[in-house]
């Protein structure tokens, strides 16, 4: 009986205080260069001076049907048996197709390594028996990490017990593996993925993602 692992994260956005601990922890753990992040906190409100009322962490959803994998011309990005979507740094040519193919804005092109980069649930840490950096460091334990295929895991129990949702991307269902509690208000931030063949790359593609949605 060797059932594969299926790693997921369940996010209770109501607990997020937007303290950015997960973002800095991730950045240090994974040597993410200045101007880029592997995870982010989406904010409801704040535009036009309005009140900011909900803070919702996001990162790579480790989709079961990942559009980024489909978009990669050299098979550098692929889904492992443990459910994590990874990038082979030896194969990646840094073309950026996968970056725009992600409806969740979870990838960026690392200007130092000149290859695509994104959250891998801190696989190095998992190998050392530790949970992802964003999960352990969180003051309010907004994220719960675990193996969904282990019926004793907290995530498996939460999936059964709690009312959870996944954030749908327009025009595509990539089967994401980050779950949110029902009642999360921020649901509309996923974008239509731009798959290969579309030569109209966004203007800001080579520029850094801004650190927050305000201002």
């Amino acid at each position: 009986m060797t059932q594969h692992k299926k790693y997921v994260i369940i996010v209770d956005a109501a607990k997020c205080i937007d303290c950015k601990a997960c973002m800095v922890a991730c950045k240090v753990e994974n040597n993410v260069p200045e101007g880029f992040w592997r995870n982010e906190i989406n904010v409801l409100g704040g535009e036009d001076g309005s009140l900011r009322t909900e803070f919702q962490p996001s990162q790579c959803m480790q989709c079961d049907d990942p559009s980024c994998v489909a978009a990669c011309p050299v098979q550098a990005t692929y889904k492992k048996e443990n459910g994590i979507v990874v990038i082979d740094p030896e194969k990646c040519i840094g073309c950026g197709n996968c970056v725009t193919a992600c409806p969740y804005n979870a990838r960026y092109r690392n200007p130092v390594k000149r290859i695509a980069d994104k959250c891998d649930f801190c696989e190095d840490r998992l190998d050392r028996g530790k949970e992802p950096a964003c999960v352990v460091t969180c003051p309010t334990k907004t994220r719960v990490f675990g193996n969904l295929n282990d019926p004793d895991s907290l995530v498996a129990q939460m999936i059964k017990k709690e009312k959870l949702i996944r954030i749908a991307a327009p025009h595509i269902n990539t089967q994401p593996n980050i779950y949110y509690f029902e009642g999360t208000q921020l649901l509309d931030w996923a974008v239509t993925p731009m798959l290969p063949g579309n030569i109209n790359m966004p203007q800001n593609f080579w520029k850094s993602k801004s650190s927050s949605k305000e201002g």
């Binding site: 800095v24 922890a25 950045k27 352990v136 460091t137 969180c138 309010t140």
Partner: peptide
Amino acid sequence: IKKLDPNPNSLKSRGMLCARGNAGV
């Protein structure tokens, strides 16, 4: 030092390290 992680034994800090704590490196 590659990374600072919360010490789960610390009851007072409830096993967390905030953004500033992570930026200690």
